[in-house]
């Protein structure tokens, strides 16, 4: 580029470069951007008023409410777990640590359907626990507790997976110094560790939340699909789709797509602003 005849020996020629860039852009446009675009064009194909009346449907509203409720329980639960797990794993050396990390990763490689199925087997009518809990007034499967449990299972590793490498990278020096200066464990955590990991933590929570609100397979198995009662947004998308209510299905889907976009925008902002405070190893 700079010189017609000089070819940088450790880079490709300009045409190759641009061919690769275009190939990547085309690939992403086809598989990622086009579906996103279609969500919005389908949602708005009958205009704004059809879109908003679809979202104002009582069943859609209760699906949105349930989704928020489930995320509001599942995300803090996994946030606390993530903090505890990363503290134990990153600040101490013990045998079996690698195995523990593998176990924490497990939900990533288990099919969502299985994540739901295990709770049906555990709490369903022909299980041991189900009838017992039911007789004490707690319905798990086909009710909100089952949906929450399945969501926690699926989003289990997100916060921990974000924090462990970050805290490992930061080492234990700061905390040791704080403690040698007389801080207790909570103080070391609140005043030393937390400020160091807050952006990584926020990022993990964002991802965890996006998945919690968008989970379909696991929740589908435990929900019972009762409109207005145990239908989360992704399940409601499916129901509307099966009702041939295309605008409704894509309208609800568009809210979830917006959430995904928002998550990514925040992620990008976090990365540009606080890149050094975020772990470089974002595996999941």
């Amino acid at each position: 580029m700079r010189n017609e005849h000089f070819r940088n020996p450790i880079s490709e020629t300009a045409p190759v470069r641009w061919a690769l860039i275009l190939a990547v852009l085309a690939f992403l446009a086809l598989f990622v951007l086009l579906p996103l675009l279609v969500v919005f064009t389908q949602a708005f194909r009958e205009g704004w008023s059809a879109y908003f009346s679809a979202l104002g449907e009582p069943d859609a509203v209760s699906a949105i409410r349930l989704t928020l409720l489930v995320a509001a329980i599942a995300v803090p639960a996994n946030l606390i777990f993530g903090l505890a797990a990363s503290w134990a794993i990153a600040k101490f050396d013990f045998k079996g640590k690698a195995f523990l990390i593998t176990l924490i990763d497990l939900p990533f490689s288990v099919s969502p359907v299985i994540s739901g199925l295990v709770y049906v087997l555990l709490f369903g009518a022909n299980s041991v626990l189900g009838p017992f809990l039911k007789s004490h007034g707690l319905q798990v499967v086909f009710a909100v507790p089952g949906i929450v449990l399945a969501t926690i299972f699926v989003t289990f590793p997100f916060v921990a997976r974000e924090l462990i490498p970050l805290m490992q990278e930061q080492g234990t020096g700061d905390e040791e110094a704080a403690i040698s200066l007389g801080a207790n464990g909570w103080q070391a955590f609140w005043y030393v560790t937390l400020p160091n990991i807050k952006w990584g933590l926020l990022y993990g929570v964002l991802l965890c939340n996006a998945r919690a609100m968008g989970e379909f397979g696991a929740v589908s198995v435990v929900s019972g699909h009762i409109r207005g009662l145990t239908n989360t947004m992704p399940l409601h998308v499916e129901i509307l789709y099966n009702d041939y209510n295309i605008v409704g299905a894509f309208a609800v889907a568009s809210l979830l797509a917006l959430l995904a976009l928002l998550t990514l925008v925040l992620r990008t902002i976090l990365e540009t602003q606080y890149g050094s405070e975020l772990s470089a190893t974002q595996k999941h």
């Binding site: 279609v38 389908q42 947004m233 998308v237 894509f250 995904a260 925008v265 999941h284």
Partner: peptide, 23 residues
């Protein structure tokens, strides 16, 4: 483009499913 790569992580599977079907 770098941010877009992560979109499939963030977008719910059911949403991707109906959108791809519509395409």
């Amino acid at each position: 483009v770098d941010a877009i790569v992560d979109l499939p992580f963030a977008i719910p599977t059911a949403v991707a499913g109906i959108a791809l079907t519509a395409i």
